[in-house]
Write a protein that binds this DNA or RNA. Structure first.
Length: 905
RNA sequence: GGGCGGCUAGCUCAGCUGGUCAGAGCGUCUGGUUUACACCCAGAAGGUCGGGGGUUCGAACCCCUCGCCGCCCACCA
């Protein structure tokens, strides 16, 4: 016998153990089976499971379990990401907390060893948590972005792209994070709005006033960058400054003579119309500098402190840079001073020189590093770039053609927008944790890009080489994930079988970071999209629509919920709430509700067990006789169809709602209740059929629920293994139900609907009339049509039980002190005379009649409109006619009843 | 500045290609020892579908407009 309740805390880990040791997570070894593959969005190896992971992985597991049960060779390929910057930062922080020497003092090798140690120590956490959630990943396929195979793939891709000219080294401005002291990509820059100032600075003309103009005023929010100014620009059409173009100004601080140039970039509408040009510290100015052949003066070191000796660079016609001997020494003793202190010092100096022409407060957006949170500097360095523009073209085309489809589709717009405006991707990072760039430098700075040091040495003719110090952006290896994890560059059976993968499930926040780049790399190296569909799941947020984050303290810990209420309950909640394109606000109450649902299911199974509802050998649901059983078999078929279609279309919430409703509101609320009299009755044949049907329906329900709440369903499946005819030993690998549509029996459906309506109507009146629950009431039927008479003959007994009636008698009209109501083709009257408050009853009838009257009114008006009758489809018109007739009949009956009540009263 | 999404019962949300679409869950209220389940059962209340205009025989659903809210991209004169 089943226990009273299911205890997820002890049962779930036990069940998971059984699944895992069964080998059932691996794809079935049947060459004929259709492959279905999902690669997991690899979480940070040292991370832990948050609600977003819980949602994302629940949905993947639902799909994998669904397809596995449908007989496909389902592979859910798990793994983790080394997460370069994030992990390195964690370990650095840890070193600091423990009072150890820092990364640089420790040295590269020792530091990387520390990171591996940290990975060994905490790397298992998230994987354990995924298991706790019930994720049916094939752990034998687990990969890590820094493992040997994936590292080989990274080297191969890098070298190949380099040889194809799609990866190159370039000196240009990058987003530089002075805290982490590394370049970061555009995507890792976060624009934050902050308070700031416009400082209006006067630059005196170097050779005296022109046309009476002695100075030119520029505005800046970053006065310290003026140390790197190499021009002042005005708009070519700006009459005010026309005469000044070509003249020189004297740099207020350094005295350097710099030209006034004409360039469209200067906006006459903004400020004074003149703008200082600092090519080495501003992306726009960089372009202006290129157009005008300006020198670039780098004034910052890699921690964004002012250089004592600025670096002067000049670009020749081939785009090569040449360092000019720096004549200048940074004035005012600013060498080595922090950028913000320098800013204050410069402003003070300008003020002292009486060249400050005003300060305005402003709010403006300033780029910050998304990891470090500090202000990012445009910084002139040598970095490796991917020619993303070229790789993007096939990626755009593939989605345009529908080779890969986004769900919901509108995310394609976001995808296109980014790819069509893509910039070169800076992939080198000045970090130590990651894939070291496979490039070596010869004594004269020649570059050799090869997969191994040995190959590079050979290419170099055997001279001593020095490997590039930098590592690759984490997302570089992530971009290869769909094929590198399947064994590429080896020509493995997995790769052949499972690439392209079936679907990617991820959040919209990494469409650029990850999805687009996987598309680019997948198409380039595999000549085929990496996945057929991309499902963008909702983002879990707090109640204010804010992203959950540790710093805000609004984080819900999914594992706490799992511990308290079970993984099934959390999974059901997330699945049911996963409506597309929406945010999910997780509430404890909601999860409790689904925990309760699990208990409900458990008890339904217990009921079946108590009533000897064993699976019958050779049972054919298509052959059942009883209306009740024909009805529930049809409802089960309909639900199976709904759930299947919903899951095929990633309608997770629809699937969850369909099976929930079926189990709770159909099977438990009505079928089992209606079955009770049969099960307790004397008709042995009916009893046997009902028992077999109930057992069959329960199994169907367990199967349909399994992808969403795998634990409790598996437990019931196993505990009922010996309860009747044998079936598959494990639910996880049992076959998904596909009851034929022929099981749907319209006649049985109509009769049960009628019975349900009749019982509900009686219950409603009893409640409204405050009839004591225990009281059995007589009911009369009048003006019953043939159908009703037949149905009453068949189900009167059932109705009596469920509605707690003492009897159902035919009568000419509702009797005195009776509460009338209309269902189908008859008027019923519940004898509530002992309890009824006549006034209340009049009110009730009045309300009913009123509702019918307004419905009649609306419908009649519609039908009275010649345009409606003429233009609306015939079936819609007919539907309205029927509706009107029914409402009018019902209203007439109730009015007659009310009339009688009046005279009695 | 460009773009996207949202605004439907107290709360969180379903409502696909316009015609039973005004719904669900939770919460609230009322009443319940019907032998599967109080993690339960039965019943009820509650919304002029953000405002305005338009198209249509007919609009929560299409168009325009306004108003909030959120997000993404760009932007340090």
């Amino acid at each position: 016998m089943l226990d009273k309740t299911f205890d997820p805390k002890t049962a779930e880990p036990r069940i998971y153990q059984r699944w895992e040791s069964s080998g059932g997570f691996a794809p079935i070894d049947d060459p004929a089976a259709e492959p279905f593959c999902i690669v997991i969005p690899p979480p940070n190896v040292t991370g832990s499971l948050h609600v977003g992971h819980a949602l994302n992985n629940t949905l993947q597991d639902v799909l994998i379990r669904f397809e596995r049960m449908r007989g496909k060779a389902a592979l859910w390929l798990p793994g983790t990401d080394h997460a370069g910057i994030a992990t390195q930062m964690v370990v650095e922080r840890q070193l600091a907390e423990q009072g150890n020497v820092g990364r640089r003092e420790l040295g590269r090798e020792a530091f990387v060893e520390k990171v591996w140690a940290w990975k060994a120590q905490s790397g298992g956490t998230i994987v354990r948590q995924l298991r706790r959630l019930g994720a049916s990943c094939d752990w034998s396929h687990e990969r890590f972005t820094l493992d040997e195979g994936l590292s080989a793939a990274v080297r191969k891709v890098f070298v190949t792209l380099h040889k194809q000219g799609l990866i190159y080294r370039d000196k240009r401005l990058v987003n530089w994070d002075p805290e982490l002291q590394t370049a970061i990509s555009d995507l890792e820059v976060e624009q934050r709005e902050v308070d700031g100032h416009f400082w209006n600075l006067a630059y005196p003309l170097a050779d005296g006033p022109v046309n009476g103009i002695g100075e030119i005023v520029v505005a800046t929010t970053r006065p310290e960058t003026m140390l790197g100014d190499t021009a002042v620009a005005v708009h070519p059409g700006d009459e005010r400054y026309k005469a000044l173009v070509g003249k020189l100004v004297a740099h207020p601080i350094t005295g350097r003579r710099i030209p006034i140039i004409a360039d469209d970039y200067a906006d006459p509408e903004k400020g004074s119309g003149a703008v200082k040009i600092t090519p080495a510290h501003d992306f726009n100015d960089f372009k202006v500098g290129q157009r005008h052949g300006l020198a670039l003066i780098n004034i910052l070191d890699d921690r964004a402190r002012i250089l004592a000796r600025p670096e002067h660079w000049r670009r020749d016609g081939d785009g090569a840079y040449e360092r000019e001997a720096a004549a200048e020494v940074t004035p005012l003793g600013l060498g080595g001073v922090d950028r913000f202190q320098a800013r204050a010092a410069i402003v003070a100096e300008i003020e002292r020189l009486e060249l400050l022409r005003g300060i305005e407060k402003t709010r403006h957006v300033v780029p910050h590093g998304d990891r470090s949170g500090v202000v990012v500097e445009p910084f002139l360095t040598d970095q490796w770039y991917v020619d993303a523009k070229t790789l993007a073209q096939p990626a755009i085309k593939a989605v345009e053609q529908g080779d890969t489809v986004f769900i919901p589709k509108n995310w394609e717009k976001t995808y296109f927008e980014w790819l069509r405006n893509i910039e070169p991707w800076c992939i080198s990072r000045q970090l130590w944790w990651g894939h070291r760039i496979p490039a070596w430098y010869g004594p004269d700075g020649e570059i050799f890009v090869e997969e191994t040091e040995e190959a590079a040495r050979q290419a170099a003719g055997g001279v001593a080489l020095r490997q590039d110090e930098d590592v690759l952006d984490t997302w570089f290896s992530s971009a290869l994930w769909p094929f590198s994890t399947l064994g590429w560059p080896g020509e493995t059976a997995d790769l052949k079988r499972f690439y392209p993968t079936s679907i990617l499930v991820t959040g919209f926040d990494i469409i650029f970071f990850w999805v687009a780049r996987m598309m680019m790399m997948g198409l380039h190296f595999m000549d085929e999209v990496p996945f057929r569909r991309v499902f963008i799941n909702a983002l879990v947020r707090d109640e204010r629509g804010k992203k959950m984050s540790k710093s805000k303290g609004n984080v819900v810990d999914p594992l706490e919920m799992v511990e308290e209420l079970g993984a099934d309950a959390l999974r059901f909640t997330l699945t049911a709430m996963s409506g597309q394109g929406r945010n999910i606000a997780l509430s404890q109450q909601r999860v409790e509700g689904y925990r309760n649902f699990g208990t409900k299911l458990w008890n339904a199974a217990r009921f079946c067990q108590l009533n000897e509802c064993r699976r019958a050998e050779g049972f054919d649901p298509g052959a059942v006789q009883l209306t009740l059983n024909r009805w529930i078999r049809g409802e089960a078929a309909r639900t199976a169809r709904e759930a299947t279609q919903a899951l095929e279309a990633c309608g997770f919430d629809d699937a969850a709602a369909a099976v929930y409703r079926f189990v709770r509101n159909v099977f438990c609320d009505w079928y089992l209740e209606l079955a009770k009299p049969v099960l307790n009755g004397a008709d042995e044949a009916a009893k046997a059929e009902t028992r077999a049907t109930a057992a069959w329906v329960l199994d169907v329900a367990l199967k349909l629920l399994h992808p969403i709440c795998p634990f409790i369903t598996e437990e019931l499946w196993v505990q009922l293994a010996d309860f009747g005819a044998p079936r598959e030993p494990m639910l996880m690998t049992a076959r998904w139900p596909q009851p034929p549509d022929a099981y749907i029996d319209a006649e049985a459906g109509a009769e049960m609907d009628w019975l349900i309506e009749l019982v509900s109507e009686v219950r409603s009146i009893r409640s409204e009339m405050n009839v004591p629950p225990g009281a059995r009431l007589p009911m009369t039927v009048s003006a019953a049509d043939e159908t009703t008479r037949q149905r009453l003959a068949r189900y009167g007994e059932l109705a009596r039980t469920l509605a707690r009636l003492s009897g159902v008698e035919a009568a000419d009209a509702p009797g005195k002190g009776a509460a009338p109501f209309v269902v189908g083709g008859a008027t019923y009257a519940l004898q509530v005379s002992d309890f009824v408050d006549l006034a209340a009853e009049r009110v009730r009838l009045g309300k009913e009649i009123g509702a019918l009257a307004s419905d009649i009114d609306r419908t009649a008006k519609k039908l009275g409109n010649p345009d409606f009758v003429a233009r609306a489809p015939e079936e819609v018109v007919e539907e309205n006619r029927e509706r009107l007739a029914e409402a009018e009949a019902a209203k007439a009956k109730l009015e007659a009843a009310l009339q009688r009540l009046q005279t009695v009263g």
